[in-house]
Design a protein around this nucleic acid. Structure first.
Lengths: 136, 136
DNA sequence: GTGGCATATGTTATATTATTACACAAACCA
DNA sequence: TGGTTTGTGTAATAATATAACATATGCCAC
């Protein structure tokens, strides 16, 4: 059985290591940062990280942040299989949060339909200051 | 006076050359592709392109596509000063279109407010198949 | 089991994208 | 004139990502 809520039971060793590294991290990590974290576990080449990340992203356990060229673990309980996701990325503390409402997905879909575009994948990343940083 | 609708009168030579290259292009171009196009105009180093692009993006004449690490010229008439922009990017023909409605910006703003996030910049890029490719 | 296949891995090399650092030149203006 | 800002040119390097190839491992049909 898995010790995580994410069902990483079927993950390979490399995939599990990368997922653990991302889970332990505060915010997002670049592939090369992950590589550095895993050198003492035997990782030697970027490809080991990228291959694991590819699979984890495919499974929905990890998301790629295009504006940062970095990766975050999915913090949602039902992370497998959810479709459109938006992220907030704090400029001050680097915190990354997932926005889950249907509003964004709905709006994007409706706008896409309006222009005759067959939408397959949305990338939505919002830069700004998070609530905690604004308050603190 | 400018020969373009974009008011590139105040652009430097390098900026104008980069903008012309992007304007002449079908879809988006990477910085290094632009560099190759401009070698016979004297361009020798990536930095010449990146510096021009930085300024053009700042002016709103060019947009950066995060999912492609590439750049497109802004096709809107009022391209200077418009805020949130969303793009559709066709997987088949690589066509890039700007979505201009207020709906997306409105939704993103309202969702950000809901979670206490001070939104500064939105990145919205939609991958799929454009109308022309679906029809053809 | 054995052979074949799909999947995962390890490793080297390389491609692609972006920035740092430093020297020089032109425009502007006090 | 001198100083400042802005742009430029160039070389070097950093950061991100993939290609190519060899080997291993698990699975399943036979």
């Amino acid at each position: 059985m898995s010790e995580h809520s994410h069902g990483d039971a079927n993950l390979t060793r490399n995939q599990a290591l990368v997922l653990e590294t991302l889970s332990a991290a505060d915010g997002s990590l670049s592939a090369y940062t992950i590589l550095d974290h895993l050198r003492d576990k035997g990782f030697r080449a970027p490809l080991q990280v990228y291959r694991a990340l590819d699979r984890l992203v495919e499974l929905g356990l990890v998301h790629r942040l295009e504006t940062l060229n970095a990766f975050v673990v999915c913090r949602r309980s039902d992370c497998e299989g959810h479709g459109t996701v938006a992220f907030t990325i704090c400029k001050k503390c680097d915190n990354v949060a997932e926005l889950t409402g249907e509003e964004i997905a709905g709006t994007l879909n409706s706008v896409a339909v309006d222009v005759g575009f067959a939408l397959e994948k949305s990338t939505v990343e919002l830069r700004g200051i998070c609530g905690a940083c604004r308050a603190g």
